[in-house]
Design a protein around this nucleic acid. Structure first.
Lengths: 204, 204
DNA sequence: ACATAACGATAACATTTGTTATGAAATGAA
DNA sequence: TTCATTTCATAACAAATGTTATCGTTATGT
């Protein structure tokens, strides 16, 4: 009864979203897919609700089928955004999940959000039982590594203006669905500075 | 004859370094270890020599047994450091290695450096043949993900002064073996600014 | 040993970015 | 609707950081 609050199962539509995502990386047969689905739980997070709060250990990985989440760090009463996730992406503090140490960050919903949740023990069990899911785990880790590596290099090598222009091109959902002051702290700058950049960029 | 320039085999001492590193993650039996060692090549890079140049695809992963490497990005005739690696660590543009696209970065040796090299096809073949090496690949990807994720969050959430203090505590080798102007660009600041931070920190 | 280059501290000044405050428009709740 | 809240732009000023140059020291190569 460990996961009693999450024992609602995902809908066929939600399952299909995850299946399409998964098949970009591996091709599970029916048995393997059954193993996978057998450890899913559905979780709904209302707007302003939390997936994880700073200080807690992140014990699960979530696949977002609807909504938007951000993770942020609190310092001196201010919130600094680390990243944003939307439908068809994962939400987790994978560092905390893997190391089983308390997270430094909170994850909250910016919109009503539906998540398919996998718990730590079930994930490890999939890895142990199956070469296919072991490979899936590797490919996922490689993908998120590439993503965060590019983001890190952009922070060091690119000006905030260039980062903002990249955001417009590569992640338009952020511009459309996230308030500007949150985007500013995501870029490591103040809302005032971002507003100045926008004015400068608009005049071109 | 594909790797003809690298067909020197590693010494017993170098093999032992890699074995110790590997066994922190997986426990290969003799047969598995033999598979692993059968695709190693030794490469020596003299000081100021290159492991990879911007524009080339990174076709290998290297384990450093001696020396120091940095990767950097060139812009407007200046060099901006991305990271540094020393003995008992890997050197690679894993993004370029995995995606098979040209690297944006160059990797050069700051000291005479010895590397045990694994080529792309051999690595993929290990993953296909063996569940143990597939797992090793996952664990490596998870580790470097955590590393770069923490670095990225530090860039967004911490002041340069705090990052410098963390460097002293967590990566003293960088302070001891890397020139200050390279450390500065690694922190995303100018050498002058880093010098000012050092003076401020010293006066405490 | 010598000449040269690389390194690091510092100063003076320029530029960028942050801080605080204000107001107007958009959004959300009762 | 009405009222409060959030969001964003902007201005004035302060603080942080970058730029350029100089100087003495320390490595490096021949």
């Amino acid at each position: 009864m460990q996961h009693s609050e999450n024992t609602i199962l995902p809908s066929l539509e939600q399952l299909e979203m995850l299946r399409l995502f998964t098949e970009q990386l591996v091709k599970p047969n029916d048995e393997e897919w059954a193993e996978f689905t057998s450890c899913m739980y559905l979780k709904h997070i209302p707007k302003k609700g939390f997936f994880l709060r700073a200080g807690e250990v992140c014990t699960s990985v979530g696949f977002i089928t609807r909504g938007a989440m951000r993770f942020y760090h609190e310092k001196d009463g201010n919130e600094y955004s680390g990243n944003f996730s939307f439908e068809n992406n994962f939400v987790t503090d994978y560092d905390s999940f893997l190391t089983r140490k308390p997270s430094l960050y909170s994850f909250s919903a910016l919109e009503p959000t539906d998540i398919i949740v996998f718990h730590y023990d079930d994930v490890q069990s999939l890895y142990n039982r199956s070469k296919l899911w072991e490979r899936f785990g590797r490919l996922i880790a490689e993908h998120i590594f590439i993503e965060v590596q590019r983001r890190k290099n952009s922070l060091v090598f690119d000006s905030p203006e260039k980062q903002y222009l990249s955001l417009i091109k590569d992640r338009p959902k952020i511009l459309e669905r996230i308030p500007q002051h949150m985007i500013a702290t995501y870029l490591g700058i103040t809302p005032v500075h971002l507003s100045r950049i926008r004015r400068k960029v608009a005049g071109k």
